[in-house]
Amino acid sequence: MSNATPSAPFAGVADEQRLRSILYRGAASAFLFALPIIVFLLIWETTVRLGWINATILPSPSNIARRAWVLLDPADPAKSILLTHIVVSLWRALSSFALACVLAIPMGLFLGLNRTAYLIASPLLSLLLPLPAVAWAPIFLVIFGQGDITIIAVCFLGAFFPILYSTIQGVRAIGRHSLWVVRSMGASRFDIFRRVLLPGALPALISGLKLGMAHSWRTLVAAEMLAALTHGLGFMIFAARSYMDVSTMFVGIVCLALIGLLIERGVFGSLEALTIHRWHGNGKVGSHR
């Protein structure tokens, strides 16, 4: 329970204090997160400026930032080259991720529930799961040629297997007693699905989605280098090679890292905060098992 339960007139003060302490803690943790990165960038900048490293191979952070500013073209966002690349890449990654979810989750639920199907599919999955999705890229190139379809298909495979695997594991980890509880209450099949299977598998499912998105994002770069015709961050990095434009390559790399971080922390972080962390308090995931 809360340690301070002040009488009514002081409640506002306590709230303000709490808010301030939350803000303070947030700022502190952001600073602690950024500090090593800032130090690293400073060292990098200095070594390049001192001429210890060839700037045409490793441009300084300030140089990269300047290049990013030019590519971003903030004066006219509609025509921004960098934004176009980012939007195209995001669209490809997200649509392949969504497609993977739509197919992998129902399939995972089915395989998790049906023992025979699981026994048949399990050896195949064990073979396919550790396979890097990019390995399929040449095959899709042969079938579909260069373009969005090939890129999305490869990213889809990157996301599909982690999501499928996690869903299966999540469902299989649900004890039969949990199912018995709702069946003894007269639950229909849909009730069982909605009230036990889905929420019960959710913690595993979320980590599968996280992994799937990460795989999709990683696969994207390689797929775009191989198969993109005009746009995408992977394409941008690879195309810059022809002009020896190392700064642009680094801009692409930084964008990939930042967007990856934002998806992981922003999207899946809040998804977890809304579900698992709330159920288990302070992130003590799995304390009930």
Binding site: S178, S184, G186
Partner: peptide, 30 residues
Amino acid sequence: PGPDRGVVFQEFVLFPWLTVLRNATLGLDI
């Protein structure tokens, strides 16, 4: 199984994603 028989398991078998109240209303919700 049927709703004429209520079972209390040795291992509780509560649903961690439901609050105490929602766990308790589960049978009625169903």
